[in-house]
Design a binder for these strands. Sequence first.
DNA 1: TTTATATTTCGGCGGTTAACGAAATGAATT
DNA 2: AATTCATTTCGTTAACCGCCGAAATATAAA
Lengths: 114, 114
Amino acid sequence: MKDKTTIFKALSDPNRLRILKMLQIKPLCVCEIRDILQLATSTVSQHLSVLKKEGFILEEKDGKWVNYIINPRPVDRRISTVLTSLDFWIGDDAINESDRLKVKTVDRLEVCGR
Amino acid sequence: MKDKTTIFKALSDPNRLRILKMLQIKPLCVCEIRDILQLATSTVSQHLSVLKKEGFILEEKDGKWVNYIINPRPVDRRISTVLTSLDFWIGDDAINESDRLKVKTVDRLEVCGR
DNA sequence: TTTATATTTCGGCGGTTAACGAAATGAATT
DNA sequence: AATTCATTTCGTTAACCGCCGAAATATAAA
């Protein structure tokens, strides 16, 4: 049986919350997220796999990129509840604002490959 | 500024979820909870202090005992949302069922002092 | 089929946390 | 005041987790 706390565990890391808020704006690939969070690519990949495993996000292969998107139809109703009112649960601060700006202007071809 | 993830951290431990569900039935003192969870008294006290710090529960001195109760009026709206629909968020399993039984029959004078 | 690029997986390091028992605190009873 | 009992705080240990870089995998381009 699945551990009831895993959904909360997934949400208990600030960087994962930032990722969710960013994906709410538009789909992003790993290196775009890496560029904004300023973490190692492998670390970002780990976070994404946690969010995917819990059902918060989905991945879509797109050529050599992997786009991650907010899961539009989560099985777990708690997940959809969190996702449909993300702002209520996670709120908004200076970091989110700055992230939002970067998400809108980030260029995949520019930030990938370093 | 308060870390947005602490509320999820508080909920990411199975024993703390069990405590919340138990307190939903009735106020309990530390050693009653200790008796049901089968943990060291100090460990239970730690869990309670986390839940109290986040605003999920309150303490009420009662002679030599300290009763813990679900916070009836949390400041943080996310906390009240979780608390008013605990079953939705935490669900219910065999352990909770067994806990519930024990909560109803536990006798403070019997289990304290060992 | 080689090369380049994006991502995942692996191994390891450092910080965090749940667990415990022992010691300290606080509050009632003697 | 001394004792007893419930609880908290402290110090320690073991497990876990986020992070990184390196190696492995996957896909596109040459």
